[in-house]
Computed example of a mutant assay.
Amino acid sequence: MARERETERENDECRPPIPAALVMSRVVGDVLGPFTPTADLRLLTSDGSIVFNGTSLRPSNVAAPPRLHIAPHHHFQGFYTLVMVDADAPNPSNPHFKEYLHWLVTDIPAAESSSGSGNEMVRYESPKPTMGIHRIVLVVFQQSRGRGRAVTAPQWRRNFTTREFSEANCLGSPIAALYYNCQRQNGTGGRRPPTLR
């Protein structure tokens, strides 16, 4: 029993932490619950720019679907599901449409690990904020039931809930997530840094 607890503690220490940017930006909390990343997610805009957590982009940067690369920490032979949502729709002061679903891709083969090789269940709709700075969140789940059977498309884009979607489709916790900030094309200013409570 003591040895099992010690092994569990060692495993917890070996798990990669949730990226601090996801916690500080309240992506973890507003969109996702705590999770243990088991893959790295790399996002490239159509012009080839690499996007990191918290990168600021304009609608022109994300007019076309981004290119993604999913790199699992351990060997995986299966499929992924990608969800892309706006956590601040229609505006950060009154996000009554949150989450707004911008993109849903299923059956992404682990062997290819890019969104272009999956089944686009909800067509990509580029973010076009009209007010404020929006957190656009991309989340990757590992499908548990194989190709074509794991995920059902939602009925609407507004008031989509990533957590409920994951639960309804038996996807479990995310394996990777990334977010960027997006504001209107000619917008100015920036997101205020989070305050500690």
Rank of each mutant, 00 (worst) to 15 (best):
M1D: 07
M1C: 06
N11F: 09
D12V: 06
P19Q: 08
M24S: 15
R26F: 12
R26Y: 12
R26T: 13
R26L: 13
F35Q: 04
T38K: 06
A39L: 05
A39F: 01
D40R: 10
L41H: 01
L41P: 00
L44R: 10
T45W: 06
G54Y: 03
T55R: 13
S60I: 06
V62Y: 11
R67V: 08
I70Q: 01
I70Y: 07
A71P: 00
G78R: 03
T81Y: 05
L82V: 02
M84T: 14
D86C: 01
N91I: 06
S93G: 12
P95L: 08
P95I: 09
Y100S: 10
L101C: 11
W103D: 08
I108M: 04
A110F: 03
E112S: 05
E112D: 13
N119L: 08
M121E: 09
V122N: 01
K128F: 06
P129S: 07
I133C: 03
I136C: 09
V139M: 04
V140I: 14
Q142G: 06
Q142D: 11
Q143C: 07
Q143V: 01
G146L: 09
R149T: 15
P154W: 12
Q155P: 10
R163V: 14
E164R: 15
F165E: 05
E167S: 14
E167N: 08
E167W: 07
S173L: 10
I175A: 09
Y179F: 15
N181C: 12
